[in-house]
Amino acid sequence: MKLAAIRPVSRALARELAVTALLLLGVSVVVFAILYLAPGDPLNVLLEGQSPRSQLALGMREALGVPQTWYGQYAAWFGKMLQGNFGNSIRTGLPVLPELARVGVYTLTLTLGSLALTLLIAVPIAVHAAAHGGTAGNTAATLAAYVLSAVPVFWFGYIVVYVFIHQFGMFPLISGTAAKQEHAWLYFLVPIFVLGIASGTLSEMIRHLREELSRVLAEDYIRTARAKGAPVWRHAFKEGFLIPVTEIMSAKIPFLLGGAVIVEQVFNWPGMGRMAWQAAQDRDFPVIMGIALVAAAFVRLGNLLQRVVFTAVNPRASRE
C-alpha cells in the first residue's frame, strides 16, 4: 500500500523536474534575448565617463574575451553555467553564484517568512468562516484583511518605517545588516510582517481557502462522515485544506518574489531583489541571468511541492 503510493509521487516528481529543466532553459534564453536586445551595453556602463570611443570598447571587449555574436555569447555563458560557473559580476568582479547564495538566504527568509505569516492569519479566518458561515467576528477579520491587502506594499512599508523606526526607534534602519546584533531575528520580523500583510496575498488566500473548504464541507461524503459519527475535519482535511493550501502557496510565490523586490528596497534588506535592482541599473548581465534563473527555480519549486502533495493525496491523480 505504502509502496504503491510512492510510485506515482516519484513519477510526478521526475516529470516536474524535467519540466523545470526545460523551463529554466527557456527562461535563460528569453532573459538573454531581452538583455541583448535592450538598449545599453555593460561595457558602456563600465567605461562611462572614461572613453566614449568605440575603438577602446572593442579593445576592452577583446581583452575580456567576449564573443562577437549573440549566440556565441549565449553559448559561452551556457557552457560555463553547466559547469556551475555563472560568471563574474561586471560591477564588482565577484563570482555570481556565491553572491547569489549569500543574498538568496535573505530573500528566502523574507518570502518564506511572509508566506508563513500570511498562512497564520488566513487559515484561522478562512476555516472559521467556512465552518460557521459569516459571523460578525470573521466578517470583520476578513474585511480588515481585504483592506490591508489592497494597500500598496511600498506605501505600507514606508508607513511602518516611519512609525516604528523613526517615531519609536524600535528597529535599526538597515535591518539586514543588523544580523550580528543581539535579538537580530526581531529586526527581521518587520519586513516579513510588511510583505506578509500587504502583498495582496492575504485576501486571495482567505478567499481561496474559504471557498474550497466550504465547497468540500457541503460534499456528500462529509454528510456521510457526520452520519457515521466520525470527525468531519478528518474527512475534509485532504481536499478541503491540504490541497488548497499548497495550491495557493505555489500560486503566490511569484507575487511574493515581486513584492520582495520592493520591500527589500524599502528596508535596505540585502536580498536578491535589491541585487536585481542594482544589476539592472548596471547592465550587469551575469548577475541578472543568475537571479532570473534562481527566481524561476524558486517558483518551480513551489509548483513541484504542490504537484507532489496533490499526487500523494489524490488517488485519482496517481492513476493518470
Binding site: 461524503y221 454528510r223 456521510t224 459519527g229 474527512h235 481536499e239 488517488p315
Partner: peptide, 23 residues
C-alpha cells in the same frame, strides 16, 4: 447525537459514489 449517530442510527444515502470519501 454523540454516541447515537453512526452507532445507534446508521445511514446509507443515494448516489453512493459521491457519498464515500474519494480520498
Amino acid at each position: 447525537m454523540a454516541g447515537v449517530r453512526g452507532k445507534e442510527i446508521a445511514m446509507i444515502f443515494q448516489n453512493p459514489r459521491s457519498a464515500l470519501n474519494p480520498y
